[in-house]
Simulated scan of single mutants.
Amino acid sequence: MSHHGVRARVAVLVALVVGLLSWLLWQLLTGEGTLVPRPSWLAALLLVGMAAFVGGWAWPVRSYLAGRSTRRLDPLRAARVVVLAQAATLTGAAAGGWYAGQLAVVAGDLSLVANQARLWRLALLVGAGLVLSAVGLVAQSWCRLDPPSDDD
C-alpha cells in the first residue's frame, strides 16, 4: 500500500490468489467424493450489507471534502473510514476469489444435480464479494485528499 491506499490491481491479485487456492482445495476435496458446501444466502446478504455500511460511513467524508457539509469532520473518524474502506476492498476481493474457486469447481461438473443447484448461489456470492471490493475502492477514493500544492 502506498499513499494512494489499496489499488485495484492489488484487489485483483488477492482475488486471483485466493481463487486459485480455493479452486485447488475444492478440487482435492471433491476428488475424494465430497461436494462443495451449499452456499448460504446469508453470506451474500452480509457482504452486500458490509458494502452498504462502508458506503454509508464514507459518504459524510465525501460530502465534507466536496464542501457540501456544514458539520465539522473529525480527522480521526475520516482516517478510520479510509482504513475501513481498504479492509472492505481486500475482504471483498478475498471473498470473491474464495467463492469463484468454488464456482469453477462446481461449473466443471454440472452433471451432478447438487452442483446445478449451487451454481447460481455461488455466482451471486462472487458478485457480492466484488460489490464489497468495488465499494471499498470507491469509498477510499472519496476520502482521498490531494497533496497540497505550492500555492496552498
Rank of each mutant, 00 (worst) to 15 (best):
L65E: 07
G129C: 03
A44P: 06
G97M: 02
R72G: 09
A79K: 02
G92K: 03
G127P: 02
A11Y: 01
D74T: 09
L103T: 02
Q140I: 03
L42K: 08
A79H: 04
G129Q: 01
G97E: 01
T89D: 07
V10P: 03
F53G: 06
S149L: 15
L130W: 12
A117E: 15
R77S: 14
V131R: 05
N115V: 02
A100V: 01
V135S: 03
A117P: 07
L112P: 12
L132K: 01
L122R: 01
E32R: 12
V12L: 13
A66D: 14
A128T: 00
R71E: 14
P148C: 08
A123D: 08
Q27M: 12
Q86K: 04
W120I: 13
M1K: 08
L45C: 12
G55H: 06
W23A: 15
G108P: 10
L35P: 05
V61G: 05
R118M: 07
A123T: 11
D150W: 14
L13E: 09
A11M: 06
M1V: 13
V82E: 12
V106W: 08
V36L: 09
L42A: 13
S133Y: 05
L110S: 07
L28T: 13
R68E: 14
Q102N: 04
G56N: 07
Y99W: 14
G108Y: 10
S149D: 15
G97D: 01
W57K: 15
S133L: 07
A8Q: 10
W26Y: 13
